[in-house]
Amino acid sequence: MFNRKLCSMKNKIKIYRAKFELTQAQLAELVQVSRQSINAIEKAKYIPSTVLALKLASIFEVKVEDLFELEEYE
């Protein structure tokens, strides 16, 4: 059951990016967005659309929920 506590979203893009030895610019080019977008997503300043989240997951060959997860806070 979904917990009704307020949620934000954290992600592991920076970790996977390091694992795949990709720079922000290279990853941005692969998913056809600007480097600013990748930077903002990594810093959790911006939550990407479902399409972009799926593209990122496909680059890192993982499921979306491995890359993004809800973070509860009171």
Binding site: Q32, V33, S34, Q36, S37, A40, I41, S49
Partner: peptide, 11 residues
């Protein structure tokens, strides 16, 4: 349009 016009720019 910006150089790369994506969803973050739209937001």
């Amino acid at each position: 349009k910006q150089k790369i016009e994506d969803e973050y720019i739209a937001k």
